[in-house]
Computed example of a mutant assay.
Amino acid sequence: MKFLLGLFLFSVLLTTGASIECEICKGVNNCTSERQICPEEYYACSSSLLENSKVKDVYMAKECAHPEICLFGVITMTDGNGSHIRQVATCCEEYACNPAAPILPERNTRANGKICPGCSSNKGDCSAAVTECIGSETYCVSYVTLSEKNVVIGSRKGCIREGTCTHLKTFDGGIFHDVNHVKNVQCTPAVAATTSSSPPPPLSFPLPFGFLLLALLLMKLLL
């Protein structure tokens, strides 16, 4: 009887999504912790790596998540003054599962000739500067993160891949290890960078001076 009751309770928890248990921790390159029961709205365990050019180390986070975060693949963004931020996550949805170890591929550092406004702030809005886009980043993105009282507590602008930007518009969660949800996402095509100076015009001479040069050249040939 106790076994049947336990099996019934487990099936109820599995149906509601509250039976998912995940490690919840953060650390440099790796971390471990005791498992915790996830809130009902999160029905996957994720393991993610975060690379931020402003910080020396690569950080790992293990947490309860919506599996949609793993559909992004590698989220890469160039966000101003040569700085960038990247994240990759793996997920699993079974009871007491362990996500595969995430791997950040080598970053493409080649400028692609596109530019966007770029900046980041964790204290509200930020002032953007012209930012060179890298690799497959052909779109400009702008978004904010909001508190529970709908107050802007962070913002980010920069270069991003088109598919990632489109996906962010419908994503109801946080990225780059931020627990606050991404809101007000705007995506626009990046513009081509213009050259700072134009080539000099071809040399030209007044008409009489041109005839004089031609006459001197002919005299030199005849002598």
Rank of each mutant, 00 (worst) to 15 (best):
K183R: 13
R161H: 07
P199V: 13
S155Y: 08
G174Q: 11
V185D: 00
T164C: 06
P208S: 08
I175D: 04
P200K: 10
S142I: 10
P206R: 13
G174Y: 08
C187L: 05
G173Q: 08
G158K: 15
F176Y: 14
L213F: 14
N150M: 04
G163Y: 01
T145Q: 14
T195R: 15
V179I: 04
G158M: 08
L213V: 09
G154F: 07
L214I: 12
L146Y: 05
A193G: 08
R161V: 09
V152L: 11
H167A: 09
S198A: 14
V182N: 13
T194N: 13
K183Q: 13
P200Q: 12
S204G: 03
P208V: 05
C187H: 00
T164H: 07
P208W: 11
T170A: 01
L213Y: 07
F211W: 06
T170V: 06
T195G: 07
A190W: 03
G158V: 12
N150F: 12
V179F: 04
L214G: 02
N180L: 04
F205S: 02
P206K: 14
P199W: 15
G210I: 11
S196G: 14
L146K: 14
T166I: 03
L146E: 15
A215I: 11
R161N: 11
F171E: 02
V191A: 11
K157I: 09
L216E: 03
H181Y: 10
H167N: 00
L212I: 11
T188Q: 11
K157G: 00
L168E: 02
T188K: 11
V182P: 04
V141K: 14
S197D: 03
A193K: 15
P189S: 10
P189Y: 14
D172Y: 04
K183H: 10
L212R: 03
G173C: 07
T145A: 08
K157E: 13
R156W: 09
V179M: 03
E148C: 03
V152G: 06
N184S: 05
L207T: 08
A192L: 15
S197G: 01
C165W: 03
T164K: 05
S197W: 06
L168Q: 01
P189A: 15
P201S: 12
G154E: 06
S147D: 12
G163F: 02
R161W: 01
S196W: 13
F209R: 07
F176W: 05
P189F: 12
V151M: 07
H167L: 09
F176I: 02
G210V: 02
N150V: 04
P200T: 12
K169E: 06
P201L: 13
S147Y: 05
G174L: 10
F211S: 01
A192P: 01
Q186T: 05
Y143Q: 05
T164D: 11
L214Y: 06
E148A: 13
K169T: 12
L203D: 01
C159L: 09
C159E: 10
K149S: 12
V144Y: 15
T195K: 15
E162R: 14
V152M: 10
P201K: 07
V144F: 08
N184G: 01
S204I: 03
V141C: 14
K157D: 04
Q186G: 00
